[in-house]
């Protein structure tokens, strides 16, 4: 079954003062195959988060079409999609495991089943032993793992990640990237991740879409032809460096620093 995500000529405008519209995304077209990992990079304010929110169904595009496996994604969010926010956005009054099972509960999954699946996810993201802690008792990296587990547990057809590791220190960030690669290779979800760190994009992605400065269009799609399964040794691969350089040049050519 092909669950290709087709983004066709998507345009997004925000209503601003005086009944005017501000165009945040000009014309984005992108095909993402089932189980493919795509990273979006581009200058700050070019419209990456906007595009991701549209894919999540939190925002409506003004023209163009988005289909997942042929079915239109316009309209309300649905359990086919899940999003990992930059701020972990955990419910502070729920324990780690209850945060993970939240999406399932909302979708009416039986409590026991939800718990069992949440526990499985907690184990997958390496948080066994911490499931009874409240978010306030977890470190930033651990919170982000819970955030990831909460999105993965619903087994979404489309996983969206908006700078998921931007708030972490460099060391934790690197560990989380390796963790994400491991998890994703274990369960390859169709994923779209926004990042400002080009090495992150190259390490994670099957292809990197470089956007123009806002309003966004796709400037170029760089296929990352690095072996899978990947592990941190690819960071030393000369091809890796070459991809980094190339994407960097594309982004910088857009002018504004990212």
């Amino acid at each position: 079954m092909s669950n290709t995500l087709q983004i066709r000529n998507v345009q997004v405008e925000y209503p601003v003062a005086d009944a005017k519209l501000f165009k945040a995304v000009e014309d984005v077209s992108l095909d993402i195959a089932e189980g493919e990992f795509v990273c979006l990079v581009g200058t700050s304010g070019c419209g990456k988060s906007t595009l991701l929110n549209v894919l999540a169904g939190l925002l409506q595009h003004t023209s163009g079409s988005i289909t997942l496996g042929g079915e239109s994604l316009k309209g309300q969010p649905s359990n086919r999609r899940a999003m990992v926010f930059q701020s972990a956005a955990l419910l502070p009054w729920r324990r780690a495991i209850d945060n993970v099972s939240y999406g399932l509960e909302v979708q009416g999954v039986d409590r026991k089943v939800a718990r069992a699946r949440a526990q499985e996810m907690i184990n997958l993201v390496g948080l066994s032993g911490h499931e009874q802690k409240f978010p306030g008792q977890l470190s930033g990296g651990m919170q982000q793992r819970v955030n990831l587990a909460r999105a993965l547990v619903t087994n979404p057809d489309l996983l969206l990640l908006d700078e998921p590791f931007a708030a972490l220190d460099a060391q934790t960030r690197r560990l989380m990237q390796e963790e994400l690669v491991r998890i994703w290779q274990e369960r390859p979800h169709t994923s779209v991740l926004v990042t400002h760190q080009i090495s992150e994009a190259v390490f994670l992605a099957d292809k990197v879409a470089v956007l123009t400065r806002g309003p966004a269009r796709v400037k170029e799609i760089v296929e990352i032809d690095l072996p899978r399964p990947r592990d941190p040794s690819v960071f030393r691969d000369p091809k890796f460096r070459a991809y980094e350089e190339r994407i960097w040049d594309l982004v910088v050519a857009e002018g504004v620093a990212i």
Binding site: N79, A89, L91
Partner: peptide, 21 residues
């Protein structure tokens, strides 16, 4: 927190569920 509200919305929670949870 507005982000928490969008978490609920994202999982397809009804208004009532967002309110309750």
């Amino acid at each position: 927190d507005k982000t928490l509200l969008s978490v609920g919305k994202l999982f397809g929670a009804s208004q009532l569920t967002v309110f309750r949870t």
